[in-house]
Amino acid sequence: MKDKEVLLKIHHLKTYFPVKRKSMKEEKKVVKAVDDISIDIYRGETLGIVGESGSGKSTFGRTILKLIEPTAGEILYKGQAIHQLKGRYLQNFRNDMQMIFQDPFASLNPRKRIGSIIEEPMALQLTLSKEQRKKRVIELLQKVGLPEDAIHKFPHEFSGGQRQRIGIARALAIHPEFIIADEPVSALDVSIQSQVLNLMMDLQDEFHLTYLFISHDLSVVKHISDRVAVLYLGRIVEIGTKTELYTNPLHPYTQALLSAIPVVNFDTPKQVVPLQGELPSPMNPPLGCVFHTRCPFVMEKCRGERPALQQQNAEQQVACFLYEK
Rank of each mutant, 00 (worst) to 15 (best):
residue 1 M to H: 05
residue 5 E to S: 04
residue 16 Y to S: 03
residue 19 V to H: 03
residue 23 S to Q: 10
residue 28 K to L: 04
residue 30 V to W: 14
residue 36 D to P: 07
residue 38 S to T: 13
residue 39 I to W: 01
residue 39 I to G: 01
residue 41 I to K: 02
residue 48 G to L: 04
residue 48 G to P: 02
residue 49 I to T: 01
residue 52 E to H: 08
residue 57 K to P: 00
residue 59 T to F: 04
residue 66 K to Y: 15
residue 69 E to R: 13
residue 74 E to T: 11
residue 76 L to S: 08
residue 76 L to K: 11
residue 77 Y to M: 03
residue 81 A to H: 14
residue 86 K to E: 05
residue 92 N to L: 14
residue 98 Q to G: 08
residue 98 Q to N: 11
residue 102 Q to F: 11
residue 128 L to G: 00
residue 131 E to G: 00
residue 135 K to E: 12
residue 153 K to Y: 03
residue 163 R to W: 01
residue 164 Q to E: 02
residue 169 A to H: 03
residue 174 I to C: 12
residue 175 H to N: 13
residue 178 F to W: 00
residue 181 A to K: 11
residue 183 E to I: 08
residue 188 L to F: 10
residue 189 D to E: 12
residue 191 S to Q: 15
residue 197 L to D: 07
residue 198 N to Q: 14
residue 199 L to W: 15
residue 205 D to T: 11
residue 208 H to Q: 07
residue 208 H to V: 02
residue 211 Y to S: 13
residue 217 D to G: 01
residue 219 S to A: 15
residue 250 L to G: 10
residue 266 F to H: 05
residue 272 V to G: 07
residue 273 V to L: 06
residue 280 P to Y: 07
residue 281 S to R: 04
residue 292 H to L: 06
residue 294 R to P: 13
residue 302 C to A: 14
residue 305 E to Q: 12
residue 309 L to W: 05
residue 313 N to S: 10
residue 323 Y to P: 11
residue 325 K to H: 15
residue 325 K to V: 07
